[in-house]
Design a protein around this nucleic acid. Sequence first.
DNA 1: ACCTGAACACCGTTCAAGT
DNA 2: ACCTGAACACCGTTCAAGT
Lengths: 211, 211
Amino acid sequence: MLRAAIDLADVEGVQTLTMRRLAKELDAEAMSLYHHVANKDDLLNGVVDLIANEINDAVEAIDVLSAGAAWKQAARERILTARTVFLRHPWAPPLFESRAAVSPAVVRYHDRLVGLMRDGGFSYDLAHHALHALGSRALGFSQELFDPGDGSAPAEIPEGMAEQLPYLVGMLREVAHDDPDSTLGWCDDQFEFEFGLDLILDGLDRLRSSR
Amino acid sequence: MLRAAIDLADVEGVQTLTMRRLAKELDAEAMSLYHHVANKDDLLNGVVDLIANEINDAVEAIDVLSAGAAWKQAARERILTARTVFLRHPWAPPLFESRAAVSPAVVRYHDRLVGLMRDGGFSYDLAHHALHALGSRALGFSQELFDPGDGSAPAEIPEGMAEQLPYLVGMLREVAHDDPDSTLGWCDDQFEFEFGLDLILDGLDRLRSSR
DNA sequence: ACCTGAACACCGTTCAAGT
DNA sequence: ACCTGAACACCGTTCAAGT
C-alpha cells in the first residue's frame, strides 16, 4: 500500500496522492484504507519511512574506510548516494520537511552519519552542530528557495531590469556568457549541491582537526 | 487584505488561512476576494512578497561597510536581521519554499546580497555558487528536517535504543549532560543557525581570497 | 476482522444574478 | 465596477451497516 502510494506520486505527482485516488489504484472501493492506516498523515509518515529505508539500504551497502581524515570522503559518498534516491522521487523533499513525527529510518540514517563523524574524531558536541549545519543536505537534498535565472529569461533582459537588479543582471550576463550553448539551465543542480556540501564538509573537517 | 492574511496566519496559524475565513475576517461576505486576487496561489504569492518587503525594509536600513574583508560581517548582519522577520512569522518559511513564481522582493534581496559579495571581491561565478550554497539560509532561515532530541526524551532513554542508535544516544547523553538544567530544548536554534551560517561564510571567504 | 456506501464538514472556484 | 449567494467538484473523515 505504501509502495502503491509512492508509485502513484512518482507517476502522477504528489498532488494526486489522495485517499480516494490511492484506493482506486488498489482496486479497493474507497475508504478501506483506514483499516491499515490511522489517517492520511499516518500514511505520509509511512511513505517517508519507506523512502528513508530505501536510502538506508543504499548507503549501508557502501563499504569505505572512515577512520581519521577518511571520514570526509565517506560522509560525502554516503550523502551523494542518499541523494540519488531523491532524484528518483523529486516530490519527496517537501514531504520529508513537513513531517512532525520523525521516521525511525531517518533517525537511523543520522545515527550512522554521526558514527562516521565519530570515526573521524569528532566530539559529540561538534557532531551535533554538524547535523544542524548540514540540515536537509545530510539526507541528500537542499530546498532551493530561489533559482536565479531558472531558464526563463535567457538572452533578452527586460528594459529597466539592469537598473533595478544590477548585480543579478551582471551575474546572469557573465555566467550565461561563460557557457553560451546552455543559456537556459545555467544552474547545474548536482554541481551546486556538491559545492555547498563540500563547503560545509571542509569547514567541519577544519574544526575537527583544530580541536 | 494581504496584511489581514498575514495577521490571520500569525494569530490563528497558517492552516486557518482559507479564502472563506479570510473573507470573514475582512467582513466581506465570502468570495469577493476574487476581485482583488486571481486565486489562492496568487494571494499566497502576495503574502510572500509583502513579508519579503518587510525584510528588505529591515536590511536596507543597515549601514555598514562592505568593502573587501568587511563583506562577511555585512552579509552576516544582513542575514541575521532578515531572520528576525521570520521569527515573527514562523509559519512563513514553508510558504517561501513552496512558491513557484519568485517574489520580486525576494529577487531584490538576493540582488543586494550579491552586491555585498561583489564589494568583497567575489567573481560573479563564486557569488552564484554562494547563493546556492546558502540556499534558504541567505534569507535567514533553514528548514530543520530532523531535530535530534527535540525535548521529547530527556532523561529516560528507552530500552534497546542504545543498541539501535548508539551514536545518537551517545550524543544525547553527552550534550544533555553538559547542560543539565535544560535537558529538553538542548538545541539552541539561534546558535545552530549562526554556526551553520558562519561555516558557510568562512568557507566562502576563504575561496574569495584564494582566487 | 475487514470492507462498504452514504453522509458530514470542510475546501477552492465558477457563475449567474444582483446593486 | 464591485459584491453576493448558490452551486460544483473536490477533499479527509465518521459512522452505521453489511459480509
